[in-house]
Amino acid sequence: EQRVMALYDFQARSPREVTMKKGDVLTLLSSINKDWWKVEAADHQGIVPAVYVRRLAH
């Protein structure tokens, strides 16, 4: 499974989004949309801005 790391803090503004802190490692579920990526963090799935995360090497 692909992982991403948060580059910045992000506060969810809707139930579809995921709140994350800089340095958090999340599971990447989908990167089809270039602006918003779907991730999973602590059993919560949602979207985060793609520019706020970076793919981690396997």
Rank of each mutant, 00 (worst) to 15 (best):
residue 53 V to L: 14
residue 28 L to D: 09
residue 48 V to M: 06
residue 18 V to P: 04
residue 13 R to G: 07
residue 25 V to Q: 04
residue 6 A to N: 08
residue 22 K to L: 07
residue 51 V to R: 15
residue 24 D to K: 10
residue 6 A to C: 12
residue 9 D to I: 09
residue 31 S to R: 10
residue 1 E to R: 11
residue 28 L to V: 04
residue 27 T to S: 02
residue 8 Y to F: 15
residue 5 M to L: 13
residue 20 M to V: 11
residue 10 F to R: 07
residue 15 P to E: 12
residue 21 K to L: 03
residue 5 M to F: 05
residue 24 D to G: 01
residue 37 W to V: 15
residue 18 V to D: 03
residue 39 V to T: 02
residue 45 Q to M: 05
residue 22 K to N: 07
residue 34 K to W: 00
residue 43 D to H: 14
residue 33 N to L: 04
residue 40 E to V: 06
residue 48 V to E: 02
residue 14 S to P: 02
residue 12 A to T: 04
residue 44 H to V: 11
residue 5 M to H: 03
residue 18 V to R: 02
residue 9 D to R: 00
residue 49 P to T: 07
residue 12 A to V: 01
residue 6 A to K: 03
residue 54 R to K: 14
residue 6 A to F: 00
residue 37 W to M: 12
residue 12 A to P: 00
residue 14 S to A: 03
residue 47 I to C: 10
residue 28 L to K: 05
residue 52 Y to W: 00
residue 47 I to K: 04
residue 10 F to D: 02
residue 45 Q to Y: 07
residue 4 V to D: 04
residue 35 D to S: 13
residue 4 V to W: 00
residue 30 S to C: 09
residue 43 D to M: 00
residue 47 I to L: 13
residue 5 M to D: 04
residue 5 M to I: 14
residue 28 L to N: 10
residue 2 Q to N: 14
residue 35 D to M: 07
residue 47 I to Q: 02
residue 3 R to W: 11
residue 15 P to L: 04
residue 30 S to P: 01
residue 24 D to F: 10
residue 3 R to T: 03
residue 5 M to E: 13
residue 51 V to P: 14
residue 35 D to E: 09
residue 41 A to Q: 10
residue 39 V to N: 06
residue 25 V to S: 01
residue 36 W to R: 01
residue 20 M to T: 01
residue 21 K to R: 12
residue 51 V to C: 14
residue 42 A to S: 11
residue 35 D to Q: 04
residue 31 S to T: 13
residue 21 K to E: 04
residue 50 A to F: 11
residue 24 D to S: 10
residue 21 K to M: 06
residue 12 A to F: 05
residue 15 P to F: 08
residue 6 A to L: 01
residue 53 V to S: 02
residue 17 E to F: 06
residue 13 R to E: 02
residue 27 T to R: 15
residue 13 R to A: 10
residue 56 L to T: 08
residue 52 Y to F: 09
residue 25 V to R: 08
residue 14 S to V: 05
residue 40 E to T: 11
residue 44 H to Q: 14
residue 57 A to N: 13
residue 33 N to S: 09
residue 27 T to G: 00
residue 34 K to H: 14
residue 51 V to Q: 14
residue 56 L to A: 01
residue 51 V to T: 14
residue 30 S to V: 00
residue 54 R to L: 00
residue 44 H to S: 13
residue 25 V to L: 00
residue 26 L to Y: 11
residue 42 A to K: 14
residue 58 H to N: 14
residue 3 R to M: 08
residue 41 A to E: 01
residue 47 I to V: 14
residue 2 Q to K: 11
residue 39 V to L: 01
residue 11 Q to Y: 11
residue 49 P to K: 07
residue 34 K to M: 07
residue 25 V to G: 04
residue 56 L to I: 12
residue 15 P to Q: 08
residue 35 D to R: 09
residue 15 P to N: 10
residue 26 L to D: 06
residue 21 K to W: 07
residue 49 P to Y: 04
residue 6 A to E: 08
residue 39 V to D: 13
residue 4 V to Q: 11
residue 58 H to R: 12
residue 24 D to T: 13
residue 44 H to N: 12
residue 2 Q to I: 12
residue 26 L to V: 03
residue 4 V to K: 03
residue 7 L to P: 03
residue 46 G to C: 09
residue 20 M to R: 00
residue 47 I to F: 15
residue 5 M to T: 10
residue 19 T to Q: 07
residue 28 L to Q: 02
